[in-house]
Design a protein around this nucleic acid. Sequence first.
DNA 1: AAACGTAACTGGTCTGACCTCTTACCAGTA
DNA 2: TACTGGTAAGAGGTCAGACCAGTTACGTTT
Lengths: 238, 238
Amino acid sequence: MDFTKLAKQKTYKQIIEQIIDLIISGELKNGDKLPGERLLAEKLSTSRASIREAFRTLEIIGLLEVRHGGGTYVQDFQIIPFLSTIAPLFFRNMDIMGELMDFRLMLEESAVKTAAKHGKPETLEKMAAALENMKSSDPAVAERADIDFHMTIFSATGNRIFELAGEVLSYLVNTSIHTSRSRLAENGEITGRWLEDHGKILAAVMNRQPEEAGKALRGHLEGVRQYMINISAGEESA
Amino acid sequence: MDFTKLAKQKTYKQIIEQIIDLIISGELKNGDKLPGERLLAEKLSTSRASIREAFRTLEIIGLLEVRHGGGTYVQDFQIIPFLSTIAPLFFRNMDIMGELMDFRLMLEESAVKTAAKHGKPETLEKMAAALENMKSSDPAVAERADIDFHMTIFSATGNRIFELAGEVLSYLVNTSIHTSRSRLAENGEITGRWLEDHGKILAAVMNRQPEEAGKALRGHLEGVRQYMINISAGEESA
DNA sequence: AAACGTAACTGGTCTGACCTCTTACCAGTA
DNA sequence: TACTGGTAAGAGGTCAGACCAGTTACGTTT
């Protein structure tokens, strides 16, 4: 005899699925405001508690933005809220940082080669603009520009998965760099060298030299990696 | 004057952080059972509702396993619950499948080269064993073996980020293949060719020929990609 | 016109009740 | 003894309703 297991979905799971389905079908899109929790609970014949439990999940997925007193809004999928929650877990043992950098190197090298081969003019312009901003004396601006420069490399592939992976890596690496970044700004030697690195990368990409670009990027990221190792070694002794 | 904004953390966020901290510090580890929701609420001077909202987040992160009537348990970080939730969103437009396959190709090619260069004997054995199981007449066993084969390639890098990325890609690709997999089992031509592909990959890795291995893998994945395109085209007309 | 204050709305939290599932234990039965 | 079924306790799932805390809009005051 073949019996099929009875499946009873939990209420909050059903709510999650329903909202995701609405997003997929396009009935809910970026920026739309959801009904209030009370009203929504009534519409779905459920309770606020279940609605809220579902919202917590959708919130960390980055599909909902919940504003205290201001309502709940749909937004496009964001990986950052999820990342920022698990990041501390990730860096439990800092030795994973090395593996992260290795991975990023492999990924970004592949991306920069693609950028050199097929990168669109707009892309190259964005990289050039980012490089300019990196010279800013405002550390926040320079940091943002640095991140943009690398993110542009990832988007140059025209592959959204690449882009997403770049975003993830960029977030993780920069989160762990961030603390030391203010110190970095005062270190003219490092900032100067990195600026030069980025210049080389951009030049190779603009000259359509994939291998050169890859080499320049590799050199840069290995420098960054070394810097991070020194930093964390310094922090241990501090 | 520089004033710092007062930050009032939401209760459920605090609970999440506290539990993550306990996991990081090692006070909570894989398999541990958490106090019941009522007791935990009392210990933290909060309500069950807040505890449960926090649990929903930790559940989707894959840090907690909640068993109805059986208690709540800590488990190591799992990406799958999160992935399975967003997967449907991901495949909203199937054209992302192509980008996913491109990305995977790049990643796995790099991994298989590493495997050929530095793969440990145990790794090669695992690949060989997976290849054997792939010949099974039980589709479920064969599918599992196929996934294992590729996952082993990713782990061969000895890089946990690679491994995680492999897991993510494997999940996404196989989720979308899965439906057509039963059909696949009946298609002797395809399964036969794929088996042969895997044999070539393994042989190149065992012979320590990185370039060969990369080429064989590329050939295989491009075949898979073509198969998937045909499948989805077929489904559209159906 | 600008500043202020207030009321209505919306999310955040808490309480306590009840339902459902799991588990363990115990009694009955073969 | 070994299996079966019943039962009670414990734990998660759901609900209703109350109150707190930000946001927003609007009307009044200056």
